[in-house]
Design a protein around this nucleic acid. Structure first.
Length: 727
DNA sequence: CGCACCACAATTTTT
DNA sequence: TTGTGGTGCG
């Protein structure tokens, strides 16, 4: 603290907005309002900010728009069509990936094409053609994609010494969070910003690098010390989150990786509970097991929100959701389809984008006939052709549609369309953003279109469109003088509104990737089978496998107190039933740090073992035969696949499920007794008590019971009724 | 031009 | 199994 530094001399870069916001919050709490001068933001927003200032030096307009992956994808699709490349061999996703990789390696389209020509590979040549065209179109639409934000900033700093100088002088302290997740471009950018001063501080954990697939290169952190010779390395090996067994188990798993610096976490929080493995018959059983454990936990006084279920793929969430609904467990799925990916949101935003930047071809094409206004594919293509020929944007052609005979049929409608947008654009100055938004919804007829056919789906869409307005209001509140462009900038880089709301008492469900940075008392890692986790794609690929193992490490270390691995012997995956053995990661845990099914306690009375101990469940199907049967079987741990006859038995199960699933939602079993406040009850484990309160939760209810000897407990009615009766 | 039906594919994800 | 995207018909 000898030399307090001015906050504006600091740039702190994170990957997610959430992390950036948290950082800002904490800074503000400890520094006060001065903290606002710190540039605490994501790579992308920092770059956007730098580019807004000087991108014109690279031949773009300063009011550039940012395309997200979907927008870029549409552009690629359009190019593919025009080039007459069949989209089976050339699917837009792989091209997008190729372009992204090229940009990360700072290989421009020309260079790419040159290399492709030399290689003689026709496929790569075509990739090059598409890449080139993509760049051309992006520039004429004055649009940049996510990679461009960083790439162009790096280029700007490299090509314009005075700009580089400006930022290097300004930022005397450069901090980068989650350094293990940086890709090449981000690495370049960090190095440029840190400049001659080398005053850079990075935070990261090589064992938590789980984004290799999107270009992150673990070498960045592994070679940091080489990069910056005088770097001081501070190792943070004390873990303040997990208890001993969990930590030891995680350490043991990650120790199997070769490409790492190596560390050993320790804790002083005691050894805690031993992680547990459960082998379920199928994914339904798996889900029911998790549900049961959660109910047992809640019965023991925990909150739903202390539990998280982590899986490898989003598709796995389905059965869990069914089980949770069936058991009246409130839950929240994090991730999956994001708010800003919804069609209606994209539509409405597209209108706003076109208002801000009429050259935005992709967004224009999206909205021109949405809602339908009689401008079809043919007209649109004619417009686009004319735009190409005349070297102007489609928007210009549309507004002068009358001058082109080939557009005669749609001319009136095209002109009306642009006239409407022009008018809306004119309103921008005289009304607030929320007002403008309403006006857009009204004038374009978007709301009317949804209201015309008020299906459930459209109802949701309307709600989403309204939800977007909330975003606008929030934005205006935080940026009183911010305009349309500012909002769009923020929104295109902010996709994160679906993040976890810890105030609601819900079980959290998410992919292991999404769980990074979070923590829960109890964590379930489901689908812990070979082929699922680690995924079949990574088996036989050492590098990939190490990444999966890191993912496992991340997932395990999310748990504070309880960790469960759950796997299924048979699983319906993509419409096919596959069988797998438990994940190798589980095998990597030394016996003393994991409890396998054969050793699973069946002693009645242990609170967390209520479910295992339960003689028969209130939920039909579970516990009958398969799932619970495996609890006692030793054969499984031995590693041999189940006998065929066993297999058959379980195999028949899914058929029965099918009908079940079709029903609206399997309601809570009827036989679960009803209780009312004041009832005297006797519980098998807790003894006698009195019902204090009952709170309905979905098909179930949360009851609070004051037990004479066991004290006050919170129990879920459906589960508890198996152990408890009125007296 | 809109809607319905069929084929096909399918980790992980931030920005 | 599920969701999406493309094609073909009314």
């Amino acid at each position: 603290m000898l030399d307090p530094c001015e906050p504006w001399r600091i740039i702190a870069i994170t990957f997610t907005n959430k992390a950036a916001d948290e950082l800002k919050d904490r800074l503000e709490k400890s520094l006060g309002p001065e903290a606002r001068d710190v540039w605490a933001m994501t790579f992308h927003s920092a770059c956007a900010r730098i580019l807004r200032r000087d991108i014109d030096r690279l031949g773009y307009g300063r009011d550039f728009t940012i395309y997200d992956t979907t927008d870029s994808g549409s552009l690629i699709k359009r190019i593919l069509k025009e080039f007459d490349l069949d989209d089976k061999t050339y699917n837009h996703r792989s091209i997008l990936g190729e372009i992204s990789r090229s940009k990360d390696a700072m290989i421009g389209p020309e260079e790419y094409c040159a290399a492709a020509a030399k290689s003689g590979d026709p496929r790569r040549r075509n990739y090059g053609r598409v890449y080139q065209e993509y760049e051309k179109r992006m520039q004429s639409a004055n649009a940049v994609d996510f990679d461009d934000l960083i790439l162009l900033t790096v280029r700007l700093l490299k090509e314009q010494p005075d700009v580089l100088d400006y930022y290097q002088r300004r930022f005397r302290y450069v901090l980068i969070d989650e350094y293990q997740d940086t890709n090449n471009l981000q690495y370049e950018l960090s190095a440029l910003l840190a400049g001659g001063r080398n005053n850079i501080c990075v935070v990261g954990d090589d064992d938590q690098s789980i984004y290799r697939f999107r270009g992150a290169t673990i070498e960045n952190i592994l070679s940091f010390e080489k990069q910056y010779k005088n770097a001081r390395v501070i190792r943070l090996e004390q873990n303040y989150r997990s208890t001993g067994h969990i930590l030891e188990a995680a350490n043991a798993v990650i120790a199997n990786n070769r490409g790492r610096k190596g560390k050993n976490l320790w804790t002083d929080r005691g050894s805690g509970n031993v992680p547990q493995l459960y082998i379920a018959g199928d994914e339904r059983d798996e889900a029911q097991y998790v549900a049961g454990k959660i109910l047992a936990g809640v019965s023991g006084g925990e909150n739903f929100r202390d539990h998280a279920v982590l899986y490898r793929m989003n598709a796995q969430s389905n059965q869990l959701e069914f089980a949770f609904k069936r058991n009246g467990i409130p839950y929240r799925v994090i991730g999956g389809t994001r708010f800003f990916d919804r069609a209606e949101i994209k539509d409405v935003l597209a209108y706003l984008c076109v208002l801000a930047n009429p050259s935005d071809e992709i967004r224009l094409a999206r909205i021109v006939n949405q809602p339908p206004r009689g401008i079809g594919q043919t007209s649109l293509e004619a417009v686009q052709r004319l735009a190409e020929e005349n070297g102007v944007s489609s928007y210009v052609i549309m507004s002068q549609a009358g001058e082109y005979p080939e557009l005669s049929r749609a001319a009136v409608r095209l002109r009306a369309f642009t006239a409407m947008l022009d008018e809306l654009r004119g309103m921008e100055t005289e009304m607030t953003l929320p007002e403008l938004y309403d006006e857009v919804l009204r004038r374009t007829g978007y709301t009317a279109m949804l209201e015309a056919k008020l299906t459930d789906e459209n109802q949701t869409r309307l709600e989403n469109v309204n939800e977007l307005k909330t975003n606008i209001l929030t934005y205006i509140k935080e940026n009183p003088e911010g305009g349309l462009k500012g909002f769009l900038d923020e929104i295109s880089l902010y996709t994160d509104i679906d993040s976890l709301d810890r105030t609601q008492d819900c079980v959290a469900m998410m992919t292991m990737h999404a769980a990074k940075g979070l923590e829960f008392d109890t964590v379930f890692i489901v689908g812990a089978e070979e082929g699922v986790f680690p995924g079949s794609r990574s088996i036989g690929e050492p590098e990939e496998m190490e990444e999966e193992r890191r993912l496992c490490y991340v997932a395990m270390t999310r748990a504070r107190k309880n960790l469960y691995f759950v796997c299924a012997r048979h699983r319906m995956l993509f419409g096919r039933t596959v069988s797998g053995r438990p994940s190798r990661f589980v095998d990597e845990i030394p016996a003393e740090h994991i409890r396998r099914p054969s050793e699973t306690g069946f002693s009645f009375g242990g609170e967390t073992d209520l479910w295992d101990a339960r003689p028969e469940g209130p939920t039909a199907g579970y516990g009958s035969g398969y799932g619970s049967g495996y609890g006692q079987r030793r054969t499984y741990g031995g590693g041999r696949a189940p006998g065929r006859s066993d297999y058959r038995e379980s195999y028949l199960q899914p058929a029965a499920q099918k009908t079940r699933k079709k029903e609206p939602l399997p309601q809570a079993p009827k036989e679960s007794a009803s209780f009312s406040v004041g009832d005297r009850v006797r519980h098998k484990a807790f003894g006698e008590g009195t019902v204090v309160s009952i709170q309905p939760t979905g098909s179930d209810a949360l009851m609070e019971i004051e037990f004479e000897s066991a004290g006050r407990k919170r129990l879920m009615r459906n589960t508890a009724s198996a152990f408890m009766k009125k007296i």
